[in-house]
Design a protein around this nucleic acid. Structure first.
Length: 477
RNA sequence: GGUCCCAUCGUCUAGCGGUUAGGACGCCGGCCUCUCACGUCGGUAACAGGGGUUCGAAUCCCCUUGGGACCA
């Protein structure tokens, strides 16, 4: 029984985007599900476009999503010798040949073929060349069978057949001595003993060529699974104009990694009607035969909903830990007391879709003094209820211990003494302590805010209210 | 241009010959209510089109259309 080995092989030419993250996730889940190994390989043979920052960004994103790998990262740039060695092997065994055609010659042939209405394939001039012109640069081409059919038994797409005559004699080593993509992947996947190649379906048409190379090199064939693409709402490739595509951008926007993982898992894969999966459930339930064949469209609202779900269900202490960087980023002082922060978070977590939003909603908890808008005071601190509010202020001063239940009792006492509904007095208090009309439940807000800050802010509002009432009185007489 | 892939509500999807075509997001409405939310109840909305196969097709086959990918 051979062990399952999967790999994720991004090229570091940009950030890890959602599609790549999902490919990584499926490889990770498949490996974990089968108690196998998950290998990370950086395909940085394109030295022009590969950057160190990009490599770092990909690794950071993988770590953030907790897609931990067992081996690697391997770097293709350090494995060039292996590729060339394999090209030599193919040359020696007659599965490849040297092609001396120049760029110009190829270009001309292509044009000619196109004009004649033929496919722009290499005409295989050098395939039957007998003597090797020494000293001239050459590329190495793979000798593709001229007839027969190569079949990809894809775990997602099913049985896909390609006529060999439609395949070109592809270049495996360029005339400058650099190996090409198809050679590198085959050599790496074979040497790394990858059993399941799970990748985007943009590679499906490369697969028959690769299969032919596996055979020529006498390596066992891995299983292939080609995942459908993730598209933008306009059904084109996901790009910046569809919003954020970089995984790390979601971290900055205040999304939880588990939420993104959950969303990505459900985009293209399903397990009955279930929408929410813990990491363990994903590992337990993931299988390739429930991966859909059709492209999926990225839906920001759904992601937001999934994130919201995780916001609501994450234990407050944990969420408090996650929100700290966002408090700092906003420029607020970080509360020293972790349990207080957890309490604060608990009042907001079912109101905020992201960590960023949570900090925005909790602003009044984090700043020293709130600015109380006079127009709101004017509207909610009507002269008729002022006495009730003064009385409430009086009772607040005596509440001991300061807890939601005791605070509620103070409210209820005023309500019965003045025959007022809670709405009448809760809203003025809310405005006084938060500076706005929207907040979590008033008892818990006051509780978290603490007695001293409550009294201070309430006093300021009452002072302002008295001034406004006095002003009004002189104005009307 | 050639080859290949794909096609169920707007979106993610369940379905794998017999269902009032189910769920979720979104949207709309009711309830709950100290504001906003949460929650809860209900509603809206789909088998791309056309041929076959079959007693019976969303499901199997073919064509068309429409998307997408790869090779250049």
């Amino acid at each position: 029984m051979s062990e399952v080995r999967t790999r994720f092989a991004p090229s570091p030419t940009g950030y890890l985007h959602l599609g790549g993250a999902r490919t990584a996730l499926f490889n990770y889940l498949f490996a974990r599900h089968h108690n196998g190994q998950f290998v990370l390989r950086i395909e940085d043979t394109d030295r022009e476009r590969s950057t160190a920052e990009s490599i770092q960004a990909i690794l950071d994103a993988m770590v953030w999503l907790k897609l931990d790998w067992d081996e690697g990262p391997y770097y293709q740039s350090q494995r060039v010798a292996f590729y060339l060695e394999h090209a030599e092997r193919l040359l020696a065994s007659g599965h490849a040949y040297r092609c001396y055609c120049t760029q110009e010659e190829l270009e001309a042939k292509r044009e000619q073929a196109l004009r004649a209405g033929r496919k722009p394939m290499y005409d295989r001039t050098c395939r039957q060349r007998n003597e090797q012109p020494g000293g001239r640069p050459y590329a190495v081409r793979f000798k593709t069978p001229v007839d027969g059919v190569t079949v990809v038994e894809d775990l997602v797409k099913g049985h896909v057949a390609f006529e060999n005559c439609e395949l070109d004699d592809l270049i495996i080593v360029r005339s400058d001595g650099s190996p090409t993509y198809n050679l590198c992947v085959v050599v790496d996947d074979a040497m790394m003993r990858i059993t399941h190649v799970i990748r985007g379906d943009d590679h499906l048409t490369n697969t028959p060529k690769q299969i032919l190379m596996y055979r020529a090199l006498d390596y066992p064939l891995p299983a292939f699974a080609h995942l459908p693409q993730i598209l933008g709402p306009d059904r084109t490739r996901l790009s910046k104009r569809h919003g954020a595509t970089s995984v790390l951008a979601y971290r900055e926007m205040g999304y939880l990694p588990d939420a993104l993982v959950n969303y990505l898992a459900r985009l293209g894969w399903s397990h009955g009607d279930q929408e929410i999966f813990t990491r363990e459930e994903l590992i337990e339930k993931f299988s390739l035969d429930h991966v859909g064949k059709s492209a999926g469209i990225y839906n920001a609202e759904k992601l937001e909903w999934v994130n919201f779900h995780y916001m609501k269900t994450t234990p407050p202490p944990e969420l408090a830990r996650a929100v700290k960087p966002f408090i700092a980023a906003r420029g607020y002082d970080l509360p020293g007391d972790d349990s207080w922060l957890a309490k604060m978070v608990a009042t907001l977590q079912e109101r905020a879709k992201t960590l960023v939003e949570l900090v925005e909603l909790g602003r009044f908890y984090l700043i020293d003094t709130v600015e109380i808008p006079p127009d709101l005071v004017h509207k909610h601190f009507k002269r008729e209820i002022l006495p009730a509010l003064e009385r409430l202020r009086e009772l607040f001063a005596t509440v001991d211990p300061w807890c939601p239940e005791a605070i509620q009792r103070a409210f209820e006492r005023v309500m019965s003494e003045f025959h007022l509904g809670l709405g009448k007095i809760a809203q003025p208090v809310r405005i006084a302590v938060t500076g706005g009309t929207v907040s979590p439940g008033i008892f818990e807000v006051l509780d978290v805010l603490g007695q001293a800050r409550t009294l201070r802010r309430f006093d300021s509002a009452l002072t302002l209210a008295r001034q406004l009432v006095a002003l009004e009185a002189t104005g009307t007489t």
